[in-house]
Structure formats: structure tokens, C-alpha cells
Amino acid sequence: MILEVANLQVKASQTYEFEQSFHQASKIISSMKGYISHELQRCLEVDNLYLLLVRWETLADHTEGFRGSAEYQEWKKLLHHYYDPFPAVHHYEIVESSQS
């Protein structure tokens, strides 16, 4: 399993609209091959900062499958205009876990 992590800095006046758009976009990403699950978390200290965590079966499912798809173009239209600055996305694999 691969964990995609993105810190999303949303334009301060658009957090409500972002959350509504993200709800729509969730339907897109959750339909993709290799998708396992996702979480969008809002920061308690910084109102317009979010953490996006997406679990994929493989790195290629995200970087090639999702990002290379027509569905990703719709995802971009729904979400990318909310970010300032545009987020860096990183991918992680488990080294150690307390979960069995």
C-alpha cells in the first residue's frame, strides 16, 4: 500500500466552497483503479490548512492511472483553483506500524 500525502493551503475566503467541491471530487477518486481509501482533515490551528491522505494499492495507480485519466481532469477543474500555493504531493510506504 502507498500513502499519498498533500498539505492543502486553501484560499482563506473559500474553505466552505472547497469542502463542497471536495465532496464531489471524492466520488471521482474513489472510483479509480487501485484506490483504497482517503481522508481530508482540517487543521485546528490554521483555518484554511487541510491534510489529504489517499491510500493506493501501488504508486502507479496514482501517478499513472489517476493522474493520466480523464477523471483527473475533472478533479483538477473541481479543486485546483482553491490552492494557494499549489501543494506538493509525496508518497510513502510503511516501514513500521502498530496495526496488525
Rank of each mutant, 00 (worst) to 15 (best):
S98F: 12
F86I: 09
H23S: 15
P87R: 02
E45P: 01
T63G: 00
Y35F: 15
R55E: 10
S31F: 03
V54G: 02
A88Q: 10
W56I: 06
E71Y: 02
L78S: 02
I29K: 05
F22E: 01
S97Y: 07
S21E: 15
V46T: 11
Q24A: 12
L78W: 02
K27S: 09
Y16L: 15
S21M: 15
E93S: 14
H80W: 13
E64D: 10
H80N: 11
P87T: 01
Q14N: 10
G65K: 02
H62C: 05
L8F: 07
Q41D: 08
L3N: 05
T58Q: 07
S100M: 09
E17Q: 14
Q9I: 10
K11W: 01
S37G: 08
V89Y: 00
E39L: 08
V46K: 09
E19S: 03
G68R: 04
L78T: 01
S37N: 11
S97V: 08
W75G: 03
Q14M: 11
A70H: 09
E4L: 07
L79W: 01
V46L: 03
L78H: 02
Y83A: 04
E96L: 14
M1L: 12
L3R: 13
V54E: 00
L51V: 08
P85E: 07
Q20V: 14
V89H: 00
L3S: 09
F66T: 07
E93F: 10
E39C: 05
Q41C: 15
A88R: 09
I36A: 00
Y72M: 06
A25T: 05
W56F: 06
F86N: 07
S21G: 02
I94Q: 14
Q41N: 13
A12K: 13
Y92H: 10
D84S: 15
I36W: 00
L49N: 08
V89R: 00
T15L: 04
L44F: 11
E39A: 08
A88K: 11
V95R: 13
N48S: 14
L40T: 00
D61A: 10
N7L: 14
V5C: 09
V95M: 13
S98L: 13
N48C: 06
E93M: 12
N7A: 10
L49D: 06
T58C: 05
F18T: 00
L51T: 08
I94G: 07
S100C: 07
R42T: 06
H80K: 11
A70G: 10
Y72R: 05
E39T: 06
S100N: 12
M32Y: 01
I28D: 02
S21W: 05
H62S: 01
E19M: 10
W56P: 03
A60D: 09
R42W: 04
K76Y: 12
Y35C: 04
I29D: 04
Q9S: 11
V95K: 13
L44T: 11
N48T: 04
L49G: 01
E93W: 07
W75T: 03
R42M: 06
V95G: 13
L3K: 13
E45I: 09
E19W: 03
M1S: 14
L40H: 01
K76N: 14
V54Y: 00
H38V: 09
F18E: 00
L53S: 06
G68L: 07
D47H: 13
Y82Q: 04
E93Y: 11
T63S: 05
Y16G: 15
R42E: 02
M1P: 12
R42A: 09
N7E: 14
E57S: 06
E64K: 08
S31A: 15
